[in-house]
Amino acid sequence: MAKTLRRLFTVLAATVAAVGLMTTAPASAETSSDTGVSPFIVGGSRVSTSTYPWVVYLATSTGGQFCGGTLVKANKVVTAAHCVSGRSASSTRVVHGRDDKQSTAGTVATVSRIWVHPSYRTASSGYDVAVLTLGTNINSTYLPLATPSDTALYAAGTSARIYGWGTTSSGGSASRYLLGATVPVTSDSTCRTAYSNYSPTSMVCAGYPQGGTDTCQGDSGGPLVAGGKLIGATSFGRGCALAGYPGVYARIASYYSVITAQL
């Protein structure tokens, strides 16, 4: 089974279940009638931006959601490089404060600048981080970045949270609503067993040995949160929520200096 990008280009586009890397982040959802949502991210439940106001999603200029992101300053969003590499700022929007993608709640912000890590080539080779500068400030709580001294947040077994509007199964339908779930950070050795290209200096993995809870297509760029800080950005994985294959995230602490230089 090929590694898949955890990215969904638009809500209406067909989800790609196995093409290269899983650069869109966590958890998708099997959703979705107008009256309800499946209780999975994969393996999660519906949550609200009123509780997690720093969770945002990236959209095309016509409104199609394709990735997630995290508000880290009033006009700055951290996401995955694979989400925005090659995109123009003018064709990109950031949606804040909208749980239901079919609603008009919250703020739709334009993007004035896209910074992609200069060493980024592919998600599986690391450096999968980007910073968006918004055309307007958003009056909201934002999430602090993990720093190089936050080593405890990356210890195996640390409880972390994932969020996104992606699919609830590999190749499934995108969730209409924001979903969240809890996953443990895995050890570097566990992640290296699953992915031969795993780099502990640029990546971190999270997930249960038995699978069942994960990010999925459309969640790329979204947050992995522990200790009240952003410790990862959803990057790639093999399938979604498979046993033995945790999700892979950009290790934010490793990029702390270059990210803060953009803030």
Score class of each variant (00 low, 15 high):
A123Y: 11
S124C: 08
A105D: 15
T92L: 13
A155P: 00
T136Y: 02
A80N: 06
A160Y: 07
W165H: 06
D100K: 09
L134I: 01
Y127T: 10
L143E: 06
R113K: 15
I138D: 00
D150E: 09
G166T: 05
S169I: 14
R161F: 10
K76H: 15
S170W: 09
V129N: 03
V108Y: 07
V84E: 00
Y154E: 01
V84C: 03
S140D: 12
L132C: 06
A152K: 15
D150F: 05
A80H: 03
T141A: 15
D128M: 05
A156Q: 10
G126T: 02
A123V: 05
V129Y: 10
T110E: 02
N137F: 11
S88Y: 00
T158W: 08
D99H: 04
K73R: 14
W115G: 12
T104P: 05
L153A: 06
A155H: 04
V116D: 03
V131P: 03
A74K: 15
V108M: 03
Y142K: 06
T158A: 04
A81K: 04
I138R: 11
T168Q: 12
N75V: 07
W115T: 03
A130V: 00
G171K: 07
A146G: 05
T79E: 07
S169Y: 11
H117E: 08
S103T: 09
L143I: 10
A130W: 01
R98M: 00
K73D: 15
A123S: 13
A109C: 13
S91H: 06
P118M: 15
S103P: 01
S119E: 10
Y163D: 04
V77N: 00
Y142N: 12
W115K: 12
A146H: 04
R87D: 08
I162V: 14
S125M: 11
P144D: 13
T110V: 04
R93Q: 04
V116W: 03
I138A: 11
T136K: 11
C83L: 10
Q102M: 09
A160D: 13
G157L: 05
L132N: 00
V95C: 12
H82L: 02
S85K: 12
A74L: 11
T110I: 01
T167N: 15
V116C: 07
K101F: 13
S103R: 08
T167G: 11
T110M: 11
A74P: 05
Y163E: 10
Y163G: 05
R87C: 12
Y120W: 13
A109P: 04
A174F: 01
V78Y: 08
R161K: 15
T151N: 07
T167M: 05
A146P: 15
I162W: 02
S173D: 10
A160N: 07
V94R: 03
